[in-house]
C-alpha cells in the first residue's frame, strides 16, 4: 500500500525535484488521512509527531483567546503544508489544527522522518530547505498581518 503513495508525494509541489530514493523514504513515512469538518487534527501543547500535506479542503490554525474564543490565525489549503513543529525541538504543537471543511491529506510520521534525516543528511538538507522556505513565507505573511494594513475599526 505504501508504494501507491510514492507518485503522490513525488508530484506534490512541496517535494518537487527531490531524488527518487528520498521520495521513497518520505513516502514510507506517509499515509492517507481524512478529516471531517470541525475535526481537531492536533491540539496546542501536544507532541508534534506528524505533519500534513493538504490535498483537498482547508485546515485552520487556531488559538483560544480568553473572551474571544477560538480564533483562526491562519489557514492551510490544497498543496500546502500543515505543521512544522515536528521538525524543531521541543516537538510540540503551538496551535490547534482544525479542519474547516472535509479535508483529505497525507499524514507523515515526523518521528520516523526525523530519524531518517539524522541518518541521511542529504535528505535532512532537502527537508530543512523546504520547511525553512515555508517558515519564511509564513513569517513574511505574519508580519504583513501584524501591520494591520486595512486600518483600525473600533
Amino acid at each position: 500500500m505504501i508504494h501507491t503513495l510514492e507518485p503522490i508525494v513525488e508530484q506534490h509541489p512541496f517535494f518537487l525535484g527531490m531524488e527518487e530514493r528520498h521520495i521513497a523514504l518520505i513516502a514510507g513515512c506517509a499515509k492517507n488521512v481524512r478529516f471531517e469538518s470541525d475535526q481537531v487534527i492536533f491540539h496546542e501543547g501536544e507532541r508534534a509527531d506528524h505533519f500534513y500535506l493538504i490535498r483537498q479542503g482547508l485546515v485552520a490554525v487556531q488559538c483560544v483567546i480568553p473572551n474571544k474564543g477560538l480564533t483562526t490565525v491562519h489557514t492551510v489549503g490544497p498543496d500546502e503544508v500543515l505543521g512544522w513543529s515536528w521538525l524543531f525541538a521541543p516537538h510540540r504543537f503551538h496551535f490547534d489544527g482544525r479542519a474547516q471543511q472535509p479535508t483529505l491529506a497525507l499524514e507523515f510520521d515526523g518521528k520516523c522522518l526525523r530519524g531518517k534525516c539524522d541518518e541521511d543528511h542529504d535528505l535532512g538538507y532537502e527537508i530543512y530547505k523546504r520547511f525553512t522556505q515555508i517558515v519564511t513565507e509564513r513569517l513574511e505573511a505574519t508580519r504583513m498581518q501584524l501591520l494591520d494594513v486595512y486600518g483600525k475599526r473600533d
Binding site: L58, G69, T75, G77, Q101, A141, Q145
Partner: peptide, 23 residues
C-alpha cells in the same frame, strides 16, 4: 477571499491576500 483574522466559525481562508497568489 481571505481575511486577516476570524472566529472559528469562518470556513474560509485566513491569511494575507498575498498568500493566495502562489496557487
Amino acid at each position: 477571499v481571505t481575511v486577516d483574522r476570524a472566529a472559528s466559525n469562518w470556513r474560509g481562508n485566513v491569511g494575507v491576500v498575498t498568500t493566495l497568489i502562489p496557487r
